[in-house]
Structure formats: structure tokens, C-alpha cells
């Protein structure tokens, strides 16, 4: 390279300007488009862990319809899903299976911990077979409290997850 300080400064400034232009006009729209596509077509895994699964089923019903927000039907194969909704208590027998399911999902993937038992053990704080919180084995993105959470609370949790995806860097 040329050992001229003024030329170095000029090259540095030009590359800076080029970077911000590409960032604003090329990368950001691409990131926006990719995130927009991902957050409005979330496929949950069909893994029912415990009793919160009935409120998830009721949330898929016609009154509180989570499909209009982007959480689609949970009847696909594991290899094409992105969201793992941990619905309730995770017992010591279910925990290794849940971890295998999480590891088999392709990137990018997110986890919603639904219910008091998935957040921290809940009502079963002294049971011999219950894991005290699912964030001991998988990384959790959104916590939805309740026992069981109302479908409206679950919808708020899904919208929080969508806001998080909207801001994420690809």
C-alpha cells in the first residue's frame, strides 16, 4: 500500500461511507425482509409437555386465533419447525427427550416457556420428578407467566417474540 498518511485517511473515509451506504441500502432491507418472512410464519413443534397444552389448543381455536398472528399449525415434521413452546411442567423423564427435540430443530430457532412450571417449577417446587425451570437445559427467549396462562397472555408472548425477531441481526 502507499505509505502516504493523507491517502490512508482518504481510503479510510471512503470505506466508512461505503460501509454505511451498503448497510443502509442493501443489508438493512435484506435483514428486514428476512425477519419479516420469519416472524409471520412461525411453525411450532407438536410437543405437549403437561397441562398447559389445553390452553394452547384453546388458543388455536376460533375465538382466540393465534394463526392470524403468525403462529401456524403444529402438525409438521420436526425438521421444518422453528419454535418450541414448552407447555407446562418438564419432568425428569421428559427432559432428555425435550433436549433431543431442541437439538434436532434447524437454526434459527426460538423457545417460549409457557406456564409457571416451565419458568421455575411452579406449584411443584418440592416434587421428586420435576425440573425446576426449563432454562436449565435450553435457552429461553420469552417467558409467559400464568397457571395456566390465558390465551390472551399467550398471544402477548407471541407478539413479544415477534418483536424480538424483528430486531435481530441475521
Amino acid at each position: 500500500m502507499v505509505n502516504d498518511p493523507t491517502l490512508n485517511l482518504l481510503v479510510g473515509k471512503v470505506s466508512d461511507i461505503l460501509d454505511t451506504t451498503i448497510e443502509k441500502n442493501v443489508r438493512e432491507p435484506i435483514r428486514f425482509l428476512v425477519n419479516w418472512g420469519r416472524l409471520y410464519s412461525l411453525w411450532p413443534v407438536h410437543l405437549e409437555t403437561a397441562c398447559c397444552s389445553i390452553e394452547f389448543g384453546a388458543a388455536s381455536g376460533p375465538r382466540h386465533d393465534i394463526e392470524r398472528f403468525g403462529m401456524l399449525e403444529a402438525f409438521g415434521s420436526l425438521r421444518q419447525c422453528d419454535v418450541l413452546v414448552v407447555q407446562g411442567t418438564v419432568t425428569r423423564k421428559m427432559a432428555p427427550r425435550m433436549k433431543w427435540v431442541y437439538e434436532q430443530m434447524p437454526e434459527p430457532k426460538w423457545v417460549i416457556a409457557m406456564g409457571a412450571c416451565a419458568i421455575s417449577g411452579g406449584l411443584y417446587m418440592d416434587s421428586y420428578n420435576v425440573l425446576q425451570g426449563v432454562d436449565k437445559i435450553v435457552p429461553v427467549d420469552v417467558y409467559v407467566p400464568g397457571c395456566p396462562p390465558r390465551p390472551e397472555t399467550l398471544i402477548q408472548g407471541i407478539i413479544e417474540l415477534q418483536n424480538k425477531i424483528r430486531k435481530s441481526k441475521v
Binding site: T49, A50, C51, T89, T91, K93, M94, R97, L123, Y124, D126, S127, Y128, N129, V130
Partner: peptide
């Protein structure tokens, strides 16, 4: 057994009315 939470054992540590929710 994937949702076995030990209800019968836990019932021995709670009062009669505390047992109702779990």
C-alpha cells in the same frame, strides 16, 4: 410416566385445603 409429578406423595405434606389446587 412423562408427566408423573408425584401427586400422592406431595399430598402428604399439605393440609386438606392446600391439596385442592395441585
Amino acid at each position: 410416566g412423562y408427566v408423573h409429578r408425584g401427586a400422592e406423595k406431595m399430598a402428604e405434606y399439605r393440609d386438606y385445603i392446600q391439596n385442592i389446587p395441585h
